[in-house]
């Protein structure tokens, strides 16, 4: 049995009680209909009401009241869970996503710095020379003017190294795409948090979550800027996969 079935185990009982009442009312109406709209109607209804066994009806209503109290108890128990999820877990998850995104951006920026520096260094290497690295000290004792094939070989290595560095720079595009994916996930969490807050307000009152949830503020004390739906700030469908297929579609449209 699922948790919802377990917690909602009384719901079928409540439905049964309500259907009993409905059945009795329907019976009353049918009896009234059969009597017709005439002077006998009142007497017919009176008889039907007597047949309702009011004691039973009162018992049914008491069961309804008990069911409602039980349901409210379940909701009250869920209030603390709801509060924890809406005020702590979801904001924490959003913070973690933001932290991961910032860390990835910083790391990508640092890698770009070093890769660009490495590219600069490849420019300082002379195809026929000894390079700038201290590791070339042994080679420095050799004649500076290498033969043509050696010079060409070093030039090829230099070009290959430069190409590899450019490839590494290109691969860092993943950071922009994953940042958009993380922003989308964070946006979904934010929407869920807002929905839970609204639900909590409906169930428990205006300030049900405000007791434990201070309004988020930025470092400067200002409330966070409303980024709207996020539609303009990120692409919810951003992906690193299938780029060539998607490019083909764009090429088809642009002819």
């Amino acid at each position: 049995m699922s948790e919802s079935e377990d917690r909602g185990g009384d719901t079928p009982s409540l439905r049964l009680t309500l259907s009993e009442i409905e059945e009795r009312i329907r019976h009353l109406v049918e009896r009234g209909d059969r009597q017709g709209v005439d002077s006998k109607e009142s007497a017919g209804i009176d008889r039907a009401v007597e047949e309702l066994r009011l004691d039973d009806l009162q018992e049914s209503l008491q069961r309804v009241e008990d069911e409602i109290h039980d349901a409210l108890d379940v909701l009250a128990e869920g209030r603390s869970d709801l509060r924890e999820v809406a005020s702590q877990r979801l904001p924490n998850a959003e913070n973690k996503l933001e932290e991961a995104s910032s860390a990835a951006e910083l790391a990508a920026s640092d890698m770009l710095d070093r890769l660009e520096r490495a590219l600069e260094l490849t420019g300082e290497l002379e195809p026929g020379g000894n390079g700038t690295s201290g590791a070339s000290g042994a080679a420095s004792s050799q004649p500076a003017a290498a033969d043509g094939s050696e010079s060409e070989g070093k030039g090829a290595v230099q070009d290959a190294l430069r190409e590899e560095l450019h490839e590494l720079i290109q691969s860092l595009q993943f950071q922009d795409i994953t940042a958009q994916q993380l922003r989308h996930a964070s946006h979904v969490l934010q929407e869920t948090e807002d929905q839970l807050r609204r639900l909590s307000t409906v169930l428990f009152g205006e300030d049900a979550l405000e007791e434990t949830v201070p309004a988020p503020v930025q470092d400067d004390g200002a409330p966070p800027a409303d980024t709207g739906s996020g539609d303009a700030a990120f692409d919810p469908d951003a992906t690193t996969e299938g780029a060539s297929d998607r490019q083909e579609m764009a090429d088809e449209i642009f002819g």
């Binding site: 450019h166 290109q170 595009q173 993943f174 922009d176 795409i177 951003a238 690193t240 780029a243 998607r246 490019q247 764009a250 449209i253 642009f254």
Partner: peptide
């Protein structure tokens, strides 16, 4: 827009 590139892209594209 005159043309359109889908990320991730490469310099050749």
């Amino acid at each position: 827009v005159d043309n359109y590139i889908v990320k991730p892209f490469n310099p050749q594209v």
